[in-house]
Nucleic acid binder design. Structure first.
Length: 275
DNA sequence: ATGGCTCTGTCACAGAGA
């Protein structure tokens, strides 16, 4: 069984590359993040033609996740129990005489499904923006709530994976130059501790082969030739419970998908399992 | 060569991404 995760940075902008990638790699399950389109607008025709069921969870301009599966797809969850919302900043364009409470929005950042023998969640963890931003507090709250929501499923005997764009580099080896990231999100102790507490429920970090260079980076900024210089980060992760981790036969970052015309800024992580 | 940002919504930029 082949499971993959890919932050596509817009599924509509990436559709030709996505279809090409499906045909070349034939995953049984592909998790997508940053689809940036509503469930209604999800371009699923060419995907379904290739034998995949599609679960799309989206809201339009931002965020959005999806699960494509050519195995049976059951017990779908859009979002998780207790998933925190984010309160968008007030519009400074209008000086309000009366403070109007703004509701927190539960964003399209998580979806779960049972795909054949595997229970699987895909996540797009909030970015955090900067350590002094409300978005950073939201990120930590979100990761803590995710841990509680997944606790019981991780402990089951059934193979379990949570995968996606975690927006955290687990160690300094997971960024191209730790000095560049001082005082930035993605590398703070609190973010790394939140990931460690998630793993402590019984998850192994399925560490992929990089295919080239030493570190299996999964993201490279579009700017300044950072991909050719391999100035990347490993932030797209596959966390597997013991049963699933024991079944892994191979894992790698498909950096070919980051090359050429019109790529995402993330590369897919591919995991093969013998379940 | 794998290359110097790109996406959406709206229509000249703003905001987000990490």
């Amino acid at each position: 069984m082949r499971v993959a995760t890919w932050n596509v940075n817009s599924v509509t902008a990436r559709l030709p590359r996505l279809i090409e990638w499906l045909d070349l790699n034939e995953p049984d399950v592909l998790c997508l993040q940053e689809t940036k389109c509503s469930a209604d607008a999800f371009p699923e025709e060419d995907i379904r033609k290739r034998g995949y069921e599609v679960v799309a969870h989206g809201e339009g301009r931002w965020n959005g996740v999806a699960i494509l599966s050519r195995l049976t797809l059951d017990d779908v969850s859009l979002g998780f129990d207790g998933q925190p919302g984010f309160t968008p900043a007030a519009d400074d364009g209008e000086a309000a005489l009366v403070e109007v409470p703004r509701p927190a929005v539960v964003e399209a950042r998580a979806a779960g499904a049972t795909c054949g023998p595997l229970r699987l969640w895909t996540v797009y963890v909030p970015n955090g923006r900067s350590p002094d931003s409300p978005h950073y507090a939201y990120k930590l709250e979100w990761l803590a709530a995710l841990r509680e929501a997944l606790r019981s499923e991780i402990a089951e005997k059934r193979p379990f994976i949570v995968t996606g764009d975690f927006n955290v580099a687990p160690t300094d080896d997971d960024v191209w130059d730790p000095a560049v990231f001082v005082d930035s999100t993605h590398v703070t102790e609190a973010e790394r501790a939140a990931l460690a507490e998630l793993r402590d429920l019984g998850l192994d970090d399925v560490y992929p082969r990089p295919l080239k260079y030493d570190a299996p980076f999964t993201y490279w900024d579009y700017r300044a030739g950072m991909f050719p210089k391999n100035q990347g980060m490993r932030i797209d992760l596959v966390y597997a419970n013991r049963v699933a981790a024991a079944a892994v036969t191979d894992a790698y970052v498909d950096r070919e998908a980051r090359k050429g015309k019109g790529p995402s800024d993330h590369a897919p992580v591919v995991v093969d399992l013998e379940l």
